[in-house]
Design a binder for these strands. Structure first.
Lengths: 388, 388
DNA sequence: AACGTTGATGCAATCGTTTGTCTTACTTTC
DNA sequence: GAAAGTAAGACAAACGATTGCATCAACGTT
C-alpha cells in the first residue's frame, strides 16, 4: 500500500553513491540497500544507540515519549528492518535451530519435519535444514555447518550421530545414547507386541518379516523387539521368511523386489510384517501383481501410518507413529533446554498405536486352495510393471 | 581430543565473570566457547588479520610457507571454525536462500523442496524454510523475515506474492507476473490437452471436473485451460458435474466429500478429472466405497504424479509434473541470477507428461451394465473383508 | 651511504547492532 | 546558592571476521 511513499523515502536517503551494478540487474525499482540503524539515526539527528534502545523498548531508560514517537515514526517511514545477522552476532542469539535429516521429500521424515516446523515457527524460531542421504561424512559436515551458521540447537531425524555436540541436540528416532543428546523414540517393544498380537489373534502363525535397511536407525531396534515379541508369543521367526531391505530409496519400489525374492523361496506364510508403510505398499502391489489377494491370501501390516496409508487400497493396517507429534515434542524439548525450562533428558518415549484397517484379516482356513506354487509361477510372467 | 587444553584456554580468557548457568545444564564436558579468530591468533602470537589471510588463501599476500603451515596446524589443533555469522556480516554474503512454502509435509511441495534442497546444498548454499498456510499476512511476514535474516534470494512454492522484492525471487507455480519474480510453471495448456484428449480417445464424453481450492495458485490457471481445451475438443463442461474443492488440507480426505456431493446430483458421467493426485486418491476411495469400480464405472485421472500415484491401487493415470526437476530449475535459476550468470527471466515453462496407468479405461459401452465391466482387478469389491 | 625493494606482519576500519557507562544541562531541595 | 538528583542522550566497546594500507626490518643496488 505505502509502496510509493516508501520508495520516495528510500531514494531520498539511500543515495550513498554506490554503483551497485550487480544488484541493479536483479531488481527493478526497489531500493538498493536496506536502511541501517546508523542511517536512521543520522536521519533523525540522534545516536544509533538511542534509536536502538527505543525500538527495542529497553526498560530502565528514560527517553521522552515525544522522541520515542518520532523515532518509531521514522523507522516506519524509512521501513527500517533490523539486520538479524548483526543482532545475532552481538547478542549471541540466532533464534535458529538446525535440522538434520536423511532426505527431503519423503513421507516419514516430512511428517516429523512438519511437526517441528510448526512448533518452531510458532515460537519465533527459524531453522536450517540439511539432508545427508545417510552418508557419514555429510552428517558430520552438515552438522558442523549448522553450528557454524549459528544454530543454537539441533534436531536430527533418523540420523546416526557419532559424538556429543556443543549445543543441545534432540534426535528423533536416533537410538544411540550420546551424552547431551535427547532421544525421542517410539516404544518399539510395545509396537512389536501390538503387531504380533494383532496377527496372532487373527490366527496367523506363519509370518514373514521384513527388516529395515541397515542405515535406518530404527531398523535394528524394531527388529530386536519383533524377535523378542515373537518368542514370547511363540511365533517362529523363520530365516527363510525374513527378508532384508537394502535399497536406499523412499519409494514403494522398496518393497517390490523383496516380495519377489520372498515368494521365490516357496514357503507358505499367511502374513507379512513390513518395515514401514512405504514398503508395505510396494509389497502389496507386488503380491497383487503376482495374483494374490491382500488380505485374502496374505495379511500385510505396515509401520508409521503415513498419510496415504489410510487411503491406500486396501487401507493399510499399520502401527501408527505419532510423527507430527514427535516432531512437536522434539521442537518443544529443544526449546525447553535452550530456555533452561527443562534439564537434559536422555530420552522421551512416545507410544505407538495399532490402526486396524483392511490389509489384515483372519487367516485363510484352507491353506491349500489359496497358495500353490503353480499360482505363483503362472502369474509371474506377463506383468507389465514398466512404469514403476 | 584436546578438550582439556581447550577449556583451560577458555577459563583463562573468557573469565568475564558470567554465571553461564543455562549453558552448563545443556552439555556435559564440551568446551563452552568455540575458538575465535582472535584467540587463535593470540595463541599463535600473530595478528588475527594474518591468520584470516592465510586461512582464506587470499591471493597476492606473501606469507612464508612456514607460517602458513603453522597457522593451519594450529587451526586444526584448536578446531577453529569460523563464525559464518560474522563473516556474512562483513562480506554481505550469507550463502543462504529463503524458501517460502504453504505447508510442510505434503507430497507436492516436498518433492519440489527436495529438488531445491539438493541443488542448493550441492552449490554450497543453505536455506531457511517457512510455511505460511496460505495466510496472506504470514506470507508477508515470513518473506520479510527471510530477508532480514540475510536470505540472498527467495524461492516460493505455490505462494501468492503481492509485490516485488528487493532480492531475486523465483516462484514455482506462482502465476502472477511480478517484476523481479521468475515464474517456474507448467505448460497448463498442454496439460489440459493431454488430459482431455486421453479421456476423449477412450470414448469419454460426459466428464466431471474438480476445481482446485481458490488459494492454490495453480487452480485458476489449470481450470481455464481445461475449459478451453474442452471447448476445442468439443466436450461439454457441465456445471452440475463440476465441483469445487475448498478444504485446506493435503490429505486425500480432500476428494472424498466432493465425490459424495457429486454423486448426489445423480447425473451420469464416465470420467472424472481431479485437481491433483491426492484428491484423486480420495475420490477413488469414495467411488469404491459407494460401490463403483475404477476404471470400470468411472475413469479417474489425477495431476502431479506424486510418489504414491504409481503404487496406488489402481495405479493412477495422471499428468506428471516434473516436480523435483522444477525445484532444481528454480534453484539453478536463483543461483544464476545471484551470480549474474543469467539475467532476469519472467518465466520458465516446463512440460507435463501423461502417465497412462490403470485408473482410466475405455468408456463403458452399455451404461446399464456398468458394474459388469469387471476385469483383472476383480478382487477389490468382493473380497473377504466382511468376514473379519 | 642513501635508497628502493621485497618479505612478513601489524593496524585499524568496517559490517549493523546492543549495552554499560558518561556527559551535559536542567531541576530540585535544603 | 551549592549540593544533589534526574532527564535525555551521546560515547565507545564489544560480537567475529575481512581487507586495504602502513610499518619495519633486512637486503641488494648504485
Amino acid at each position: 500500500m505505502r509502496k510509493g511513499e516508501n520508495s520516495e523515502g528510500t531514494t531520498t536517503v539511500a543515495s550513498g553513491g554506490s554503483p551497485g551494478t550487480a544488484t541493479n540487474t536483479n531488481l527493478m525499482g526497489a531500493s538498493n540497500k536496506p536502511t541501517s540503524l546508523k542511517k536512521l539515526a543520522q536521519h533523525l539527528g540522534l545516536n544509533p544507540a538511542t534509536v536502538s534502545v527505543v525500538l527495542n523498548d529497553v526498560p530502565g531508560r528514560n527517553i521522552p515519549q515525544a522522541t520515542r514517537d518520532r523515532i518509531k515514526a521514522a523507522a516506519k517511514e524509512l521501513n527500517y528492518q533490523p539486520s538479524l545477522l548483526a543482532r545475532s552476532l552481538r547478542n549471541r542469539r540466532t533464534l535458529t535451530i538446525g535440522i538434520l535429516v536423511p532426505e527431503l521429500g519423503d513421507g516419514y521424515h516430512t511428517q516429523v519435519m512438519s511437526g517441528i516446523g510448526d512448533h518452531l515457527i510458532d515460537s519465533g524460531y527459524f531453522y536450517f535444514t540439511a539432508h545427508h542421504r545417510h552418508r557419514k561424512n555429510l552428517v558430520e559436515e552438515y552438522g558442523q555447518m549448522l553450528i557454524n551458521r549459528g544454530a543454537e540447537a539441533m534436531i536430527t531425524i533418523d540420523t546416526a550421530l557419532e559424538h556429543p555436540y556443543s549445543i543441545p541436540v534432540v534426535a528423533v528416532a536416533g537410538h544411540r545414547p550420546i551424552s547431551g543428546v535427547t532421544n525421542v523414540l517410539l516404544d518399539h517393544r510395545f509396537a512389536a507386541e501390538l503387531t504380533l498380537s494383532h496377527l496372532y489373534s487373527l490366527g496367523h502363525r506363519e509370518i514373514a518379516f521384513m527388516r529395515g535397511q541397515p542405515f535406518s536407525s530404527d531398523s535394528d531396534e524394531r527388529w530386536q523387539h519383533l524377535v523378542q515379541a515373537a518368542r514370547e508369543i511363540k511365533i517362529k521367526v523363520d530365516p527363510d521368511l525374513t527378508l532384508q531391505l537394502d535399497r536406499d530409496t523412499t519409494s514403494p519400489e522398496l518393497g517390490y523386489p523383496a516380495i519377489q525374492r520372498l515368494l521365490s523361496v516357496g514357503k507358505y506364510f499367511s502374513a507379512l510384517v513390513c518395515f514401514n508403510d512405504i514398503s508395505a505398499i510396494g509389497a502389496i502391489r507386488a503380491l497383487q501383481d503376482l495374483g494374490m489377494n491382500v488380505p485374502g491370501d496374505v495379511s500385510v501390516i505396515g509401520f508409521d501410518d503415513i498419510r496415504s496409508a489410510s487411503f491406500h487400497n486396501p487401507r493399510l493396517t499399520t502401527i501408527r507413529q505419532p510423527l507430527i507429534n514427535m516432531g512437536r515434542i522434539a521442537a518443544q524439548c529443544v526449546l525447553n533446554r535452550l530456555h533452561g525450562t527443562e534439564g537434559y533428558r536422555e530420552q522421551i518415549v512416545v507410544e505407538p498405536e495399532l490402526m486396524v484397517r483392511e490389509s489384515t484379516g483372519v487367516v485363510c482356513t484352507s491353506p491349500s486352495t489359496v497358495r500353490t506354487r503353480e499360482n505363483k509361477k503362472s502369474t509371474k510372467s506377463g506383468d507389465s510393471r514398466g512404469d514403476v
